[in-house]
Design a protein around this nucleic acid. Structure first.
Lengths: 232, 232
DNA sequence: CCCACTTTGTGCGTGCTTTCACAAGCGCGT
DNA sequence: ACGCGCTTGTGAAAGCACGCACAAAGTGGG
């Protein structure tokens, strides 16, 4: 038997859990603002819209941060989740493509939670370059490598038209950025070791349409549940 | 043995498959534009960024639309997927919250694929109401019920601040909308039978941050793969 | 007509996710 | 000090999802 190191939690948090931690974090911060000191898994699960057993198992991957018979201390849990998600350090973000969406992202102040700082805005259109958006000057895409280096950009956001997205991704990767958030409706091709996440409006709408049609077709009892709908 | 009805495909497409169909559809439409008539599962899988076995299994849920030894006929498959996703009918969409994001969504012409029509824009701010955005007049939120009824809105998009989102959702549900796409950073509470999908920028960033930190921490070979990264 | 080649459709093993159900642990009142 | 009630943390089971590997089925050439 290999002796376990002192570190309480094992490496390797399930991906499904990671995706829910930010939701828990937001619910906890709302509770914190309202002055709540402790909360049970049942109540927190309600606020996060998940099953309480799932929530407990998720949190158990971070360590034993609850007290039996009482619940979780809100402030402590906020800190632990923040640390696990890497929000105790600052992340520098560059947004490429300052169209409608890019502007909306740039102006999305607060950026959800602290931890993320918009370091630069880039665009290829000379009409847009030089303008000031969200108190940042829009710079030309040609400066991408320089900006990434000088500002220590570690997360790249692509909000360009579909045709330009792959090229921008290549340049981000070349410049050493290994985390990319892609809003363009294309599948990006990146080497191993680069993490790409995709946000796609039209895909979401199409999934909604599928379920809506399903409901309209095969009406009747239980149809909605079968379609895998929100159960609250 | 129960005699199988003439309909070739069974009801009940896995949720994971449904989420990928729009990606396949987009890849196929790109091929169509380029004039490609048929394509193998291998090539289509490449274009969609998935494993070819997964693609074949996904498509097999719709029916046997391929020809062994040849591949899939692009045009036919586009039609079948469109029909399955409910894109052969028109969906009327209302957007509530015409801030930066709402405007970006309204101007996001084409809306990915056809099938979705923006029927109305609504906001609570008198400063915004009455303005014209994307050749639509922004109407006051008080007209929500009327607009939903008159324009036959079946999908509601919420792009309001977090605080207003639940109220808007309630009104959508009350008005009979059963499909909601939520951009506000809150967990919406809706009755059974209502389908909510969430798009959340800061959650995506936090997931990226988690993996980036993981890579920085436990460097070394295989660390990226363990973090569940894009493998292309 | 038959054979070699190509590509689909799927049975099956594996691993991840969710959920149930309960033992273990903690606080409080007596 | 002790027992009662509450809540966490987790073993175990069930359900999904993924990907391999191959039989089935089609094409084209001789």
């Amino acid at each position: 038997m290999i002796s376990r190191p002192p570190r309480p939690r094992e490496r390797g948090i399930p991906e499904a859990t990671v995706a829910r931690l930010p939701v828990y974090l937001r619910a906890l911060q709302a509770l914190q603002d309202r002055g709540t000191a402790t909360i049970s898994s049942e109540d927190l699960a309600g606020a996060a819209g998940v099953n309480s057993a799932k929530l407990r198992k998720d949190l158990s991957h971070l360590g034993s941060y609850g007290t039996r018979g009482v619940g979780y201390e809100v402030e402590y849990l906020v800190y632990q989740i923040s640390r696990e998600l890497g929000l105790t350090q600052d992340w520098s973000v560059a947004i490429v493509g300052i169209g409608n969406l890019g502007r909306a992202l740039a102006n999305y102040g607060g950026f959800g939670t602290r931890g993320f700082r918009i370091a630069a805005l880039l665009d290829a259109d000379p009409e847009v370059v030089g303008r000031s958006v969200a108190s940042l000057d829009v710079r030309h895409i040609d400066n991408l490598e320089e900006v990434v280096r000088d500002k220590g950009v570690s997360i790249g956001v692509i909000a360009t038209p579909a045709g330009s997205a792959q090229g921008v991704a290549d340049r981000f990767v070349e410049a050493g950025v290994t985390s990319i958030l892609n809003f363009a409706p294309v599948v990006l091709n990146v080497p191993d070791g680069v993490d790409v996440r995709k946000v796609d409006l039209s895909i979401e709408l199409q999934i909604l349409a599928f379920h809506a049609q399903r409901r309209a077709d095969g009406d009747g009892p239980g149809a909605a549940e079968r379609a895998g709908l929100e159960v609250t």
